[in-house]
């Protein structure tokens, strides 16, 4: 369990993290989501004992980071952002060094982790000469070599190609069955795809903290319909559609001649789409496009992090 309690950290005048608190239970995959510069990396760096909090306390398992940093570091596997690793070292030497420091003496574990991360082919290359994707895999192998209870990954899929991203996500989900995983990202689909829980950080503060599905469904009622209709103007369209049950408002998006596009805000559980189509057809207009959108994590994220927060 990781307990972060009222933690703040400033760099000079800049407040990077501003009094955040959260608890991460064992066996959960938690996504730390936020725009660039929101304080994600700083938070992770404090949990891993790289930075010291100015205020507040962090407890990892039974140990506080300010009292027993070495014990905390032993239980954590950490993949820093951009995996800045020793470019002059061979992959093999680097992992050997890590295993030595971590007191891992099992050769089987070494082979297992190399196979799991798919780095057997590059063992005798210099890290600096590897592609971004391989560097990231070496970073993952480095983080997991001692089979840690807690895995902290700072932007684990940055710089990977789509196939590798899917591989790494599967790997993270696999690990997440038994271990506690925290990953930071600014990619929403990553959170939706891998995380049980999301913490959204904005300007150093937590603006949302919930299970991924709750965060999505809490606002599922807010649906809207996007239509593009030809053969009428906006006022005709909004007049005709405004009367349909379930329609809250009709908003013009663009155009008017010859096609008018509008966003129709909906309420209630009913589906007004047949009615909309019927209205358009009865008036002899042409329906070019109709699509329904429920609020996604993306719009939650945008709502919480664009413009909001106190400056």
């Amino acid at each position: 369990m990781i307990r972060v309690d009222g933690v703040s950290k400033s760099f000079g005048e800049v407040v990077a993290v501003d009094g955040i608190s959260f608890i991460i239970r064992d066996g959960e995959i938690t996504g730390l989501l936020g725009p660039n510069g929101a304080g994600k990396t700083t938070t992770l760096r404090m949990i891993t004992c790289y930075l010291r909090p100015d205020r507040g306390s962090i407890t990892v398992g039974d140990y506080r980071v300010d009292e027993n940093p070495l014990e905390v570091r032993k239980t954590i596997g950490y993949l820093p952002e951009l995996a800045p690793i020793y470019g002059d070292m061979l992959v093999f030497d680097y992992l050997m060094f890590t295993a030595d420091i971590r007191g891992v003496q099992d050769d089987g574990r070494f082979r297992e982790i190399a196979g799991l991360c798919g780095i057997n082919d590059v063992m005798h290359k210099k890290i600096g000469e590897l592609s971004k994707g391989y560097k990231q895999r070496v970073g993952l192998a480095y983080a997991m070599i001692h089979d840690p209870d807690i895995l902290i990954l700072d932007e684990p899929t940055s710089g990977l190609d789509p196939n590798q991203i899917i591989e790494i996500r599967n790997l993270i989900r696999e690990i997440g069955r038994k271990k506690t995983v925290i990953l930071s990202t600014h990619i929403l689909s990553e959170v939706e795809a891998t995380c049980d829980r999301v913490i959204i950080i904005h300007r150093g503060k937590i603006v949302a903290d919930d299970r991924t599905e709750n965060l999505k469904s809490s606002s599922a009622a807010e649906r809207s319909l996007y239509v593009s209709v030809g053969g009428t103007d906006f006022s005709g369209l909004s007049g005709a559609l405004g009367g349909i049950p379930g329609v809250v408002s009709v908003e013009r998006i663009e155009g008017g001649d010859p096609i008018v596009s509008a966003r129709i805000a909906l309420t209630g559980a009913g589906d007004p789409r047949p009615e909309v189509f019927g209205t358009v057809a009865r008036n002899g207009w042409v329906l070019y496009e109709m699509s329904q959108k429920t609020r996604s994590l993306e719009s939650v994220f945008r709502e919480l992090t664009v413009g909001g927060g106190d400056a």
Binding site: R45, Y50, R73, P80, R102
Partner: peptide, 14 residues
């Protein structure tokens, strides 16, 4: 310079 200090200081090494 390279940022590997973060590696060194998050390993269980005093």
């Amino acid at each position: 310079q390279s940022g590997s200090m973060e590696i060194l200081l998050t390993l269980p090494v005093s």
